[in-house]
Amino acid sequence: MSEWFRVFKQGLSIENPLTVLMIGLCATLAVSTQFQNALFMGLAVIFVLTMSNVLISLFRKAIPSEVRIPIFIVIIAAFVTIVDLVMKAFVPGVYAVLGIWIPLIVVNCIILGRAEAFAYVNGVGLSIADGLGMGIGYSTVIVLLAFVRELFGTGHIVWFEGTLISLPSGYAPPSLLLLFPGAFLVFAFMIVGARWINERFEARKEAAACRP
């Protein structure tokens, strides 16, 4: 069980797909202009990542290594299409904005990367931990990024029809934050923050290990 939590925590911290491994950035930077959309994007990634990890690790002994990539892609594409159809049917407002980025999860390297590097060589339990950890790690970063960009780029956070938070009306939002340079700037600060947190934890762990 402690192994399960170790793998789960890795996705959130020292192996975070966005701030540490830095994969799957394209969709992240593009989608993180709105808090609400980023949240749904995160949920979609958690679902696809966990489900594809489970299936691939379940059948990993039956998947010949020569054709593993096509099989991974078919499995991932199937789950992405399921998410795509379900979102279209139940949250059309969100789907209208996320649009092409949902189908593009298929080629998101986080998912194929975890299938190849983790699920294909580990058991089902650990693969679930990896999928959830990586998925939640991804979602935390993209949601935080979108929160900062939307709040300071437009002056308020929108949730479906309503407004969650509004900055005082005197605030003139710089639209730079909503454009790609803003995405890179905010993301750079998030990487700094993530490194700082990770290093502090590492230092604490080392200090604990040195104690007699």
């Binding site: 010949p64 054709v67 078919v74 379900v86």
Partner: peptide, 16 residues
């Protein structure tokens, strides 16, 4: 294996 994966995926998608 590729064929089986494709058939199962297609069936799942058809249902969804």
């Amino acid at each position: 294996p590729v064929l089986v994966t494709c058939i199962v995926a297609a069936a799942g998608l058809a249902v969804t």
